[in-house]
């Protein structure tokens, strides 16, 4: 196999190009897979379905601000221990919650939607005033049994504009941009 060991210039070039190509593809794949902003990791494997469907809790029990604030608000673990002071189930996640909540700096639930600074979105305006159901943007979050790594509905500017156009709501730039 002497021929193969000494590669011709064309093949050598092709092999080099392939390597670079694969390296670029690998770089992109690695970057996407390990994007710290891409996947949101929550401190507790919170089960929305159990709390909303089974326990019948209202959204505002934990998302305390959605009715009259810009942000909907996320609960801190202290709020959880309002109910979970003593274990209510045998769930290992609950045990973890109770343990985490007593630490000096308990971790917080992280938000899924990352709104850029230059866009103004207000829950009060959309939920309280316009009466949109949560599912319009949050999809079937209430059905989930574990926290999703990202938003269930991809909201981009076009999503906003389409919805605004359908409902005959202003689409001028500074209604949202700031």
């Amino acid at each position: 196999m002497n021929v193969d060991e000494k590669l011709g210039p064309t093949r050598r070039l092709a092999l080099g190009a392939l390597t670079v190509l694969m390296a670029v593809a690998g770089f992109a794949a690695g970057r996407v897979t390990f994007n710290p902003n891409g996947a949101v990791v929550q401190p507790i494997q919170f089960n929305h379905r159990k709390h909303v469907k089974d326990a019948g809790l209202d959204c505002s029990t934990c998302h305390q601000y959605y009715a009259d604030h810009q942000h909907s608000g996320l609960p801190d673990l202290a709020l959880c221990t309002g109910c979970h002071q003593q274990p209510m189930t045998k769930s290992p996640e609950e045990a973890k919650l109770i343990k985490l909540a007593t630490t000096a700096a308990p971790p917080a639930f992280r938000k899924l939607f990352r709104l850029p600074d230059h866009a103004y979105y207000s829950h009060r305006r959309h939920v309280t005033l316009a009466g949109l159901p949560c599912t319009t943007c949050h999809g079937a979050i209430a059905e989930t049994t574990a926290p999703p790594p990202g938003p269930l509905v991809q909201v981009v500017m076009k999503t906003c504009l389409d919805c605004h156009a359908r409902r005959n709501v202003p689409t001028n730039c500074i209604a949202c941009h700031r």
Binding site: A25, G26, A29, G30, T33, F34
Partner: peptide, 10 residues
Amino acid sequence: GAGIGFGLGA
């Protein structure tokens, strides 16, 4: 190449 690239990307 892909492996090294993936690692660097991560």
